[in-house]
Amino acid sequence: MTMLDETPLLSVTGLSRYYGERVGCRDISFEVYPGEVLAIVGESGSGKTTLLNCISTRLEPSAGCVSYRMRDGESRDLYRMSEAERRLLMRTDWGFVHQNPADGLRMTVSAGANVGERLMAVGERHYGRIRDTATHWLSRVEIAADRIDDQPRAFSGGMRQRLQIARNLVTGPRLVFMDEPTGGLDVSVQARLLDLLRGLVNDLGLAAIVVTHDLAVARLLSHRMIVMKDGRVVEEGLTDRVLDDPQAPYTQLLVSSILQV
């Protein structure tokens, strides 16, 4: 019988972010454990992207605390770390998958260099090894090896998104943030990407926080979910429980609004 790992990887307490008078998100608390996928759902303007940015050190919260358990086991308050430490964390132990791949890729350097950049950033100085690792990761995200020297400008939307994922995973992160990872893709491409993400998350034991407005994405990828409205959490729980037996009025509305195919 495996025991539950009781130390969270990421722990958010009383987090708020205001934009002047307006509320981005207010008094949010939750935890993410190793290997767990958490979906944050809600409509546009519900504060989910603000929340994602606050917990990934991209936007300083107005109040509250975000702590992360480092590889040495020590939990650190992200906003008390030096910027150098935070940035190191972001390019080694974390990944961030943007909705628009152009925001997460260098569009004018080759696919291989996009994947290899993080390795070079942590001091890898052997071209052959960098290239081998890049080739391996391209194949894991189903990009043919002969595209390694092509720039992502020449890639389709789905390929770009897969490349962005490879670029993030190459340093073996423990936590990946994803902002609408399948947004803007054709349905068939979405399905392929979701399947790929699911496989990678399972195989690598990644923890992930996925922001999405698409409940189908949340159902396929996440173990747990948080439903947000007007900057607050209105419901949280096991993903299939929230979707099959929604409790909060807003969640019921959201679930009942899904188009059936």
Binding site: R106, V109, G116, A121, Y127
Partner: peptide, 11 residues
């Protein structure tokens, strides 16, 4: 953070 410099040489 000079990883980027090597990206250029890699290219």
């Amino acid at each position: 953070e000079y990883g980027l410099m090597h990206v250029k040489l890699y290219e």
